[in-house]
Design a protein around this nucleic acid. Sequence first.
DNA 1: GACATTCGATTACAATCGTAGTCAATGGTG
DNA 2: CACCATTGACTACGATTGTAATCGAATGTC
Lengths: 133, 133
Amino acid sequence: MVVAISPVMNTPRISDSEWEVMKAVWDHEPLTAVEVLKHLPHDQWKQKTVNTFMNRLETKGVIRAERVGRPNVYRSLISEKQCRGMEGSQFLKKVFRGEVAPLMLHFIENGDLSKNDIAELKQMLEKRYRPDG
Amino acid sequence: MVVAISPVMNTPRISDSEWEVMKAVWDHEPLTAVEVLKHLPHDQWKQKTVNTFMNRLETKGVIRAERVGRPNVYRSLISEKQCRGMEGSQFLKKVFRGEVAPLMLHFIENGDLSKNDIAELKQMLEKRYRPDG
DNA sequence: GACATTCGATTACAATCGTAGTCAATGGTG
DNA sequence: CACCATTGACTACGATTGTAATCGAATGTC
């Protein structure tokens, strides 16, 4: 019997600029490369550059192109959440030595949280404290 | 009158591997390149590689070499805290679109916080809520 | 002081990233 | 159907990163 090997898609690395593109994709997919540009700061991005990124992202397996009509239509293959997971754990390990608490402290001190944010976070922490509460 | 321009040391980018080296530096400075290697996973780092990084980090202005005795002695010029600041705000912007709350939520859900961590964080949030409390 | 050893500065080199340009095919227009 | 415009595939190219090797200078040894 042949055992199917689980298709471990170990999330590829997504560079800074690729993230910008991907945010446009996640927010508006399915979309074309031209549409992607529309959702990016127009003065900082040229169409050709966007195109290159679409290609690279497809090669990396982050998106998929439907080569059907004339303008290619793209969809994400990996969700923003998944990417946040990867990027987040890398960041945590790299910058905060894998310790979540100092990281949290850092962002509590440096980020500007609204009163609402703070309330919400406290609630979240409560729940975590007593998972069934 | 000549106005002194504040010496804005806009923190340079520090790559993943450079971060590893810098952690050794921050933890044990002042130290030599040979000592840096001692504090890194020995099987993953060669002395020559470490050396290259020391050079690059000096070029970038992250560390400084004292060329006095024979083995160069290195010190950091930028603190871990400063670097965390830079790296943190980039990460926040790139991955969480600049919104701190979702970031925090993410790490509350994904990181494993101890009861103690949670208590501490709640306290921090309290303080933030009433800054003079 | 001659020689072996140790270190640092310089050089190397492939992969990835940012930023496009070229060129050819596809598709709309008259 | 001939032509022009759009668009995608491929190519380009310098900077950065990861990973070292080479080569020459400073140091310690006899």
